[in-house]
């Protein structure tokens, strides 16, 4: 199947600004699905609210554009009801970790077989550049005009601590690596999290003098270091990309099905 076969061309053009990184993530995600050769009928993509979440409308899959922060809760219902389906959940950083933080932690802890993709542009883009849980200390946002008082939440650390069994990070600059990580996350049996840094030149970039899309992507290129690299000691702005967690633990739906099998009345009991 060709890449464009996954796109609902009827509903293009998309709503994203020129230079937005979300389109790169969408194209990379489609290529990952294409390479895994998963039939379109077997994929449900559930998103929340925000720029990121509009991705589902453009993809020719079973798509569910839910409420702000609730994508993982809807997805949990879908997966529990039909465990054979692949359920992929793209979310924004505020969507997944501010308003949706509780659902995120508990989806990690359940280890239910969902693929959470956090499209981290460090801001609320749809509403015009407010501070997000991923905005760094001192950075500007329309609701932190004098600089962010808080600290950026480390989603990798949160996911690991909460019990996610696959955790990775990449950026839209590192598209080939991102594709591989997305493929592994989708194939992983358990709750997987892929944080994807993506640029918002319109709001985050403009408010923080980060330049245009090319400059912001170049910054990703220059500051990304492999997991475990010592290079972060020289420059605290550097961040790790790659695979942080990849372990096996009982998956929630599989554990449920074991109970169903155990409780099923045996045919010979009625003989």
């Amino acid at each position: 199947m060709a890449t464009l076969d996954y796109v609902r061309r009827r509903f293009l053009p998309h709503i994203w600004c020129p230079g937005c990184g979300h389109g790169t993530l969408m194209a990379t995600l489609v290529r990952a699905i294409e390479e895994l050769a998963i039939p379109k009928d077997q994929i449900v993509m559930a998103s929340g609210i925000g720029c990121s979440s509009r991705i589902v409308g453009y993809l020719d899959l079973h798509t569910l554009h839910t409420l702000h922060g609730r994508a993982l809760a809807f997805a949990t219902g879908v997966k529990m009801a039909k465990p054979d389906l692949h359920v992929i959940v793209p979310m924004g950083d505020g969507d997944a970790l501010a308003i949706g933080g509780n659902h995120f932690i508990h989806a990690c802890a359940r280890n239910i077989d969902l693929t959470a993709i956090i499209m981290n542009n460090q801001t609320y883009g749809m509403t015009g550049g407010q501070v997000s849980p991923m905005t760094g200390h001192g950075e500007r946002a329309t609701t932190m005009p004098y600089g962010n008082l808080g600290q950026a939440l480390d989603v990798v650390a949160v996911a690991r601590a909460a019990g996610a069994t696959y955790v990775a990070r990449s950026t839209v600059y590192h598209a080939p690596q991102l594709k591989k990580l997305l493929m592994k996350a989708i194939q992983h049996r358990g709750f997987s999290v892929v944080e994807v840094l993506t640029q918002c030149p319109t709001y985050y970039g403009r408010l923080n003098q980060r330049g245009d899309a090319v400059e912001m992507m170049t910054w990703f290129k220059e500051h990304a270091v492999p997991v475990g690299s010592d290079a972060r000691k020289d420059d605290p702005a550097r961040f790790e990309v790659g695979e942080f967690v990849n372990v096996e633990r009982p998956e929630y739906c599989a554990s449920y099905d074991e109970i169903v099998t155990r409780l099923k009345p045996r045919e010979d009991e009625h003989a």
Partner: peptide, 25 residues
């Protein structure tokens, strides 16, 4: 569970109804 139906206790009532809507679909 004995009739292969699905039960889940969610993290709150918000998640509960959202999961119900997802399952219904």
């Amino acid at each position: 569970p004995p009739i292969a139906g699905r039960f889940i206790q969610m993290e709150d009532e918000i998640g509960s109804l959202c999961a119900v809507l997802g399952a219904s679909l």
